[in-house]
Computed example of a mutant assay.
Amino acid sequence: MPELHKDMRKAPARDPRTRYRFFGYLAAYLLCIYGHRSGVLTKIKVKEVKDALGDERAGYLVNVMEHKTVRKFGMAQIYLTSEEYGWCTEWLRFRQRAVPTNHYFFSALGRGEAKDLVKYFRKAWKEMGLRGSPTLMDIRSAVATYNFESNDSEVRQHVATFMCRDVRTQERF
């Protein structure tokens, strides 16, 4: 991430390539840890990152209020260490040069969220030298499978809920 931030500092303000490269790496990182749907990431708002609960010692909790299954599971959450939160605040400083009116964290040049997150993710995946070309749902399924196979039923339930996924879906598939 520090290398990506250096690249962003050097890039012209409205050059989307560096921004989307950063989005791909950050999305890969967060999705591989948490297994959220891509919509959780694309719906994160700048205000939600700025309003994250926590501190440098304990880390930060970002509450995502808008996503596909909010009615069933409530807000989605992403925990960030202080270093990870620093990556996000660094991006917020950079984005002021290019997309200050867009309220989404993973932003397009217009007013909406980044629609091609899977494309950015796959480019980052390939650049990291990883094999294959997984979809974001492949990653979500892998995280869910690992949870199902590695945890007892109580932990499995908590992780599934955190992923905004019904544990019965895990058991069925």
Rank of each mutant, 00 (worst) to 15 (best):
K72Q: 12
I78G: 00
C88R: 01
L80S: 04
Q77Y: 04
Y79F: 04
L53M: 12
V64C: 01
E84Q: 05
H67P: 03
T89Q: 05
K72G: 10
W87F: 09
R71A: 10
H67Q: 09
G74I: 03
E83Q: 02
V62A: 08
V62N: 07
V49R: 12
L61V: 09
N63S: 15
V64Y: 11
T81H: 02
L92W: 10
F94S: 06
A76V: 08
T89L: 04
D51W: 15
D51E: 08
A76K: 01
I78M: 01
M65W: 14
T81V: 02
K50P: 12
I78P: 02
R93N: 14
G54P: 10
A76G: 11
Y85P: 09
G74F: 03
T69H: 03
T89Y: 05
A58P: 04
V70I: 11
S82G: 03
D55N: 15
Y85C: 08
L92S: 10
C88L: 12
A52E: 07
K50N: 12
N63V: 11
L61S: 08
G74N: 04
T69Y: 00
L80T: 09
Y60P: 08
N63L: 14
N63K: 09
D51R: 10
G54F: 04
W91S: 02
G86L: 06
M75H: 14
E90P: 04
H67R: 06
T81Y: 01
W91F: 06
D51H: 13
W91N: 00
R57F: 12
V62D: 02
K68R: 11
T89D: 00
H67F: 10
A52G: 03
C88N: 06
V49P: 14
S82N: 14
W87I: 06
I78K: 01
L92F: 09
E90C: 11
G59E: 02
V49K: 08
K68N: 07
D51K: 15
L53E: 11
K68M: 07
E84G: 05
V64L: 13
S82P: 06
C88D: 03
K50Q: 08
H67D: 02
L92Q: 11
M75C: 05
G54C: 13
A58M: 12
D55Y: 13
S82M: 01
Y85T: 04
G59Q: 06
